[in-house]
Amino acid sequence: MHTMSMRLVSGGTYNVRASEMAAHLQERQQKSITCMVHFLDDSQEAFEVDKRAKSQHLLDKVFDHLELVEKDYFGLQFIDLTPAPDTMGHGSHQSAGPYSLRWLDPLKTIKKQCRGPPFEFFFRVKFYVSDPSKLSEEYTRYHFFLQVKRDILEGRLVCPHNTAALLASYAVQSDLGDFNPDEHREHYLADYQFIPSQTEEFEKQIAELHKQHRGQTPADAEYNYLDKAKRLEMYGVDLHNARDQSNIDIQLGVTSVGLVVFQNNVKINTFPW
């Protein structure tokens, strides 16, 4: 064991134990860091990456884990522990309570961007396509389906009640298959959550619509889900708070077709690319 070191502080001295010094030295000598990635299906996986490697190395490991072919639509987000300002003018942030979510830059190291350990990331759709039902890979569509479902549940994608029920019924068909009166008794949807304030009446509406989807495979149901979701006015809109010339609160949305302006979740202007 090393001799304990002594440091002078105001009013006296304190000991720094050799074990603490050894732990600090060990941390400096570690060549890799552990990154926990949370996926859209609520699973999670730990990945070991070289602490000096660019973040693209982590992205590559995640894509390999998922066996994703169409990689360019997806990215990893992390919680930026710097409190989010009231007005955000850059596309790198999304609100996450008092903090914000930032996209991991693949050209920089992880430790240059994130505080940790722990290093936690969220796998998300980064670029929404205008017609996700036409994506060439079924597995890519599956992740878009999971993302849009999460967008509605977390209130980022505003959706009329009847449309939300129809979308939810496709999600149920994807998960449970055809409606079966022997298995799917009253309240069989009680453990599902599709919208922020879900009611029993809403679940009954979903159940009635679920009965109409007999014969649809999970891939069929997810295709139909995305075909309906793409028509929502706020589908794929990444909103950022701003103020106009009259100091009125607005939201600027970046989409695949151009820049859109919303006020109180109502689109008031569009500027095509």
Results as ranks from 00 to 15, higher is better:
Ser5Arg: 04
Met6Gln: 09
Thr13Ser: 10
Thr13Gly: 05
Val16Ile: 12
Ala18Asp: 14
Met21Val: 15
Ala23Lys: 09
Leu25Met: 06
Arg28Asp: 05
His38Pro: 01
Gln44Leu: 10
Asp50Val: 12
Asp50Trp: 09
Asp50Gln: 07
Arg52Tyr: 13
Leu58Cys: 02
Leu59Gln: 10
Val62Gly: 06
Phe63His: 04
Asp72Trp: 05
His90Gln: 11
Ser92Cys: 13
Ser92Tyr: 13
Tyr99His: 08
Arg102Glu: 14
Arg102Asn: 03
Trp103Gly: 07
Ile110Phe: 09
Cys114Ile: 12
Phe119Gln: 07
Glu137Phe: 09
Glu138Ser: 14
Phe144Ile: 02
Phe145Lys: 00
Lys149Cys: 08
Arg150Tyr: 01
Glu154Gly: 15
Arg156Tyr: 10
Asn162Ala: 14
Thr163Gly: 02
Ser169Phe: 07
Leu176Lys: 01
Pro181Gly: 00
His184Asp: 13
Arg185Glu: 11
Tyr188Ala: 10
Asp191Met: 13
Phe194Gln: 01
Gln198Asn: 02
Ala207Gln: 06
Gly215Ile: 01
Gly215His: 02
Gln216Ser: 06
Pro218Arg: 13
Asp220Ala: 07
Ala221Pro: 00
Leu226Gln: 04
Ala229Val: 04
Lys230Ile: 05
Tyr235Lys: 01
His240Glu: 10
Ile250Leu: 06
Val257Asp: 12
Phe262Thr: 13
Gln263Trp: 00
Thr270Asn: 07
